[in-house]
Measured scan of single mutants.
Amino acid sequence: KLLSSIEQACDICRLKKLKCSKEKPKCAKCLKNNWECRYSPKTKRSPLTRAHLTEVESRLERLE
């Protein structure tokens, strides 16, 4: 599967780190437990900047 097509777990399953069936409108866990089942939009991760990478590398060197 391509990364862009990976389905996201519902908010509660993601928060509780449960295996989500990803069914809509309610996944199996939410249906069974009568929880409100919501699927928040995916958040875009910002790409690493060179400055951040350099900072992490220098912190790693100090720890070694």
Rank of each mutant, 00 (worst) to 15 (best):
R62M: 15
C27I: 02
E23R: 09
K17V: 04
K17C: 04
D11C: 02
L15A: 10
K16I: 00
W35M: 13
C30Q: 01
T54P: 05
K19R: 14
K29A: 04
C30P: 01
C13M: 03
E55P: 00
Y39N: 01
I12K: 10
R62L: 12
S58H: 15
L15P: 00
E64Q: 14
I6W: 13
K22T: 02
A28E: 11
A51L: 12
R59N: 10
Y39G: 03
L53P: 05
I6F: 13
A51Y: 09
S21I: 03
K29Q: 08
R38N: 15
A28Q: 14
S46C: 01
L3E: 15
E7G: 09
K19T: 07
C20Y: 06
S21H: 02
A28C: 12
L15W: 13
R59H: 09
E57V: 05
S58L: 12
E55T: 12
K26I: 15
L31K: 15
L2I: 12
S5W: 08
L2A: 13
V56R: 02
A28P: 01
R62A: 15
S40Q: 07
T49C: 05
K17Q: 06
P41A: 10
L15G: 14
A28L: 10
C20G: 04
K32F: 10
R45Y: 01
A9V: 08
E7I: 11
L53V: 10
P25S: 07
P25T: 07
E23M: 13
P25F: 04
R50I: 04
R59I: 03
T43G: 11
E55R: 10
S21V: 02
K29W: 00
E55V: 10
N34D: 12
L53I: 03
C37I: 00
Y39D: 00
P41Q: 09
Y39M: 05
R62I: 13
L60Y: 13
T49I: 05
I12T: 10
L15V: 12
C27D: 05
V56L: 10
K42S: 09
K19M: 00
K22L: 05
I6H: 10
W35K: 11
T54F: 07
K42P: 15
W35R: 11
L18N: 14
K17T: 03
S40I: 06
K29P: 03
L53G: 00
E61W: 13
C30N: 06
E57M: 00
K1G: 15
T43Y: 06
L53W: 04
H52N: 08
L31R: 15
I12N: 07
A51K: 11
S4W: 09
S58D: 11
L60H: 04
V56M: 08
R62Q: 14
C10N: 06
L48G: 04
K44I: 14
K19S: 06
C13Q: 00
S5L: 13
L15E: 12
H52T: 00
K17R: 08
Q8S: 12
K16C: 06
C10H: 01
L60M: 13
S4M: 14
